[in-house]
């Protein structure tokens, strides 16, 4: 078949895989650690991949292990999940335009929007001539596959994976955020967003401590950037 819609799909997988390698390093190691913890907490092994598919949000899943093991009531778990994942509401705001052209994969892209995938989608440009939706979907699906595979491996044979060699590999996710920040600085050459976000994070940490740092810092940053509305383009 010689249709135009077939050609781009071939082109996006390679670039999408290259873009996702940092996530591969981070998600597979943290996923294995997660699966291992699920089993150690006395939960059945299959809950590890089930959580990774149904919830697919790292911080909330780690929290869920302790809560499930303690038999916490569902309403309370839902509220805690809301607090941890409320930051994702803000992510979508800056993706409204990018996702507006998406059709077939839009629902999946929204479901699969983790911190790391958000970072890649807002910073890495789709390859020349390719459909952006196909590239976004490929990146998102690769990222999720690493997370689900890691959590499955960790739950099934986690005890056999020697951690003394892999210890520190999860730094790849911090490194990914540093790279994405450098690229943001390259494209948005204004001091205000970076200064405001830094001030907001430090302030949130000093006032409220490490718990819920992300959501408080993000809300404070938005309030801060709004104060500069007249001075910024």
């Amino acid at each position: 078949m010689h249709s135009n819609s077939e050609a781009p799909r071939v082109k996006v997988l390679g670039p999408a895989f290259t873009a996702s390698i940092p996530v591969l390093l981070g998600y597979s190691t943290i996923g294995i650690a997660f699966g291992l913890l699920v089993v150690k907490a006395g939960l059945p092994w299959f809950l590890s991949p089930v959580m990774s598919i149904v919830i697919y949000a790292g911080a909330a899943q780690f929290m869920a292990i302790a809560l499930l093991a303690a038999g916490t009531d569902i309403v309370q778990m839902a509220i805690l999940t809301l607090v941890i994942n409320a930051r994702h509401m803000v992510y979508g705001l800056s993706l409204l335009d990018r996702f507006a052209v998406c059709r077939r994969w839009k629902g999946y892209l929204i479901y699969a929007l983790t911190d790391e995938t958000y970072g890649l989608l807002t910073t890495v440009s789709p390859p020349e001539g390719a459909r952006s939706e196909s590239f976004y979907a490929a990146v998102s699906a690769l990222d999720e596959s690493y997370w689900v595979a890691g959590s499955l491996v960790g739950a099934v044979i986690g005890g056999l994976v020697p951690t003394e060699y892999t210890k520190g590999l999860d730094f790849a996710l911090t490194a990914l955020f540093v790279v994405l920040l450098v690229e943001q600085i390259r494209s948005i050459r204004r001091i205000e967003p970076y200064a405001i976000a830094t001030a907001a994070t430090v302030l949130a940490f000093v006032l409220f401590g490490p718990a819920n740092l992300l959501v408080i810092a993000i809300l404070a940053s938005i309030a801060g950037i709004l104060a500069f509305r007249r001075r910024l383009p």
């Binding site: 800056s94 970072g119 920040l181 976000a197």
Partner: peptide, 22 residues
């Protein structure tokens, strides 16, 4: 929102980097 969404990615990346060090 048009204004805010332009600055959300740089602010979020800054926060995610700092959050890794908390």
């Amino acid at each position: 929102l048009d204004f805010v969404q332009r600055y959300i990615p740089p602010m979020i990346m800054t926060i995610l980097v700092l959050n890794s060090f908390k």
